[in-house]
Design a protein around this nucleic acid. Structure first.
Length: 210
DNA sequence: ATCCCGAGGG
DNA sequence: CCCTCTGGAT
């Protein structure tokens, strides 16, 4: 895809969805961080079902520490990987209180030092909460970047680097959510809906699914 | 490279 | 049944 096509690619996504935002439900920075950490290998819908209960019981870091790993575990059992996530969330809340006044740090290294928080989660928090021009490469972004030819790469590091080189500045802030949402509802993993895709004529994959 | 791990879709 | 879902730690 050349630079003219890439600009058109994002122009169309922005036209279809001018203000894209996460579908995770949250009422504070702490809740966003928790929800994103819990969303690893899980759908947003299943995370929202669990966090509605969880955040009602423990809306902030202090309450989460008081709730404790065992109770957290019970509340998020319907999400996959729940034992690791419960342990991570309890420790994460405790560390936020000890090191960051119970708030979410606006700092990549501090975020990635938290249990259960790697580069992808840190990128989502920096972008969604602090509006920094980061692009988190998750399963949807990786698939879409490769499939369409927007930013090919053999691993997430390569794709992220390619995206920073190729995505026009004016679209950088929202690129993450546009790619996620398009991947979730149109460019799906198993059976992509090329017939109703606004990017069809720009996509390297289009002819393989007819 | 492997493990974690429930729910929903096809 | 198998595949997928906004990955991270070992």
């Amino acid at each position: 895809m050349n630079s003219t096509e890439i600009r058109e690619f994002f122009r169309r996504l922005s036209e279809a969805n001018p203000e894209p935002k996460t579908e995770l439900e949250y009422g504070s920075g702490f809740q966003l961080l928790a929800a994103v950490m819990l969303s690893a290998q899980a759908t947003d819908k299943s995370v929202n079902v669990a966090t509605r209960r969880l955040f009602a019981l423990a809306p902030d870091a202090e309450a989460m520490v008081r709730l404790g790993e065992e109770r957290i575990s019970e509340e998020i059992k319907t999400i996959g990987l729940y034992r690791n996530k419960a342990r991570n969330l309890a420790q994460l809340a405790r560390i936020l209180i000890e090191r960051h006044d119970g708030e979410v740090p606006r700092d990549r290294a501090a975020l990635e030092a938290l249990p259960g928080v790697g580069r992808k989660t840190a990128n989502v928090v920096l972008n969604t909460l602090f509006r920094e021009p980061t692009i988190a490469v998750d399963t949807h972004v990786f698939r879409l970047a490769n499939r369409t030819g927007l930013a090919p790469g053999k691993d997430v590091q390569e794709v992220e680097a390619a995206l920073y080189k190729r995505v026009p500045r004016q679209y950088l802030l929202n690129a993450h959510h546009w790619l996620i949402l398009h991947g979730r509802y149109v460019c799906t993993a198993r059976k992509p809906r090329c017939g109703e895709c606004c990017l069809r004529d720009l996509c390297a994959f289009r002819d393989k699914t007819d």
